[in-house]
Computed example of a mutant assay.
Amino acid sequence: MWDQWRNDRLRDERITFNANNRVFSKYFIPIHSKMLVYVLGSVQQLQGVYEVTGDYRYSGDPRFNVELPVRLLLDKEIGLATSDIKRHISSFNPSTQGISYQAISKRIFDKLLSDLKNK
């Protein structure tokens, strides 16, 4: 997510993508899937968890024209740093341009979720 994520008044209910983004074109994200929220920019932390509540739909925004309905399940203002995440996913590199989604196993998800809850 972008580093102004906390200022988005709709962040509890949707995340947006550009239809040209490979996440939108490559991945089907099933309803009830869980998503970890890594905030980019000046934050550089894993700070939340979403549950997907619906299918992709068009948002009406010309730049971020696709949205995915979600419900925010966990929101931590102080989250996991990149180094914390790399203990579980050594290849994690959020500064790689264009990386906005990385599929992980349930086992890794559960470890990161536990670390985040205990932060």
Rank of each mutant, 00 (worst) to 15 (best):
L113C: 09
N65R: 02
Y50F: 09
R9L: 12
Q47S: 05
D8L: 11
R63W: 12
D8C: 09
N93W: 06
R11D: 08
A81W: 11
R107G: 07
I108F: 06
I104F: 06
I99H: 05
Q4L: 14
N93R: 09
V39H: 00
F17W: 14
L116N: 03
F24L: 00
E51C: 08
I99L: 12
Y58A: 04
Q4Y: 15
H32R: 13
D3L: 01
K111W: 08
S114V: 10
Q97F: 10
N93F: 06
N21G: 11
Q4R: 14
D110C: 07
I31F: 07
P30V: 06
T53K: 14
V70H: 00
H32L: 10
K26R: 14
K26M: 10
R63V: 13
V37W: 07
D61H: 15
V49H: 01
F109D: 04
F109L: 03
I85G: 05
S95Q: 14
L46R: 02
M35V: 15
R87M: 13
N20A: 13
G60L: 04
T96F: 06
D61I: 05
N18H: 08
E77W: 12
D115E: 14
T82C: 09
N21A: 15
K117Q: 15
R22T: 11
N20K: 15
K86D: 07
P94E: 01
P62A: 02
A81V: 12
F109A: 04
V37T: 08
T53E: 09
Y56H: 00
L40N: 15
V39G: 00
G48V: 03
R63K: 12
S59Q: 00
F24N: 03
E51M: 14
Q97P: 03
D12F: 08
P30H: 07
W5L: 08
D84P: 06
L36Y: 08
L74F: 05
R9V: 13
N18I: 02
R9N: 13
L68E: 02
R107M: 09
V70C: 01
N7S: 14
S105H: 09
R87N: 15
L113M: 10
N65L: 03
S114L: 12
T16D: 11
P62N: 04
R57N: 08
G98H: 02
L36M: 15
W2D: 15
Y56P: 01
T96S: 06
S91N: 04
Q44W: 06
G60S: 04
R107H: 10
N93Q: 12
S42P: 05
Q97W: 10
I29V: 04
Y101V: 06
Q45I: 04
L40E: 13
T16P: 06
G98W: 02
K76L: 04
F64V: 04
V49A: 02
D8P: 03
T16F: 11
Y58K: 09
D75Q: 03
L10A: 12
D3H: 05
W5P: 03
Q97Y: 11
W2M: 13
L113T: 09
L46K: 01
G41H: 05
F109R: 02
Y58N: 05
T16L: 14
R71T: 15
N20P: 04
F24G: 02
V52Q: 00
V39C: 00
S90Q: 11
W5H: 11
T82D: 09
R63L: 13
D75Y: 00
R22E: 12
V39Y: 01
Q44E: 13
D115T: 10
F28M: 07
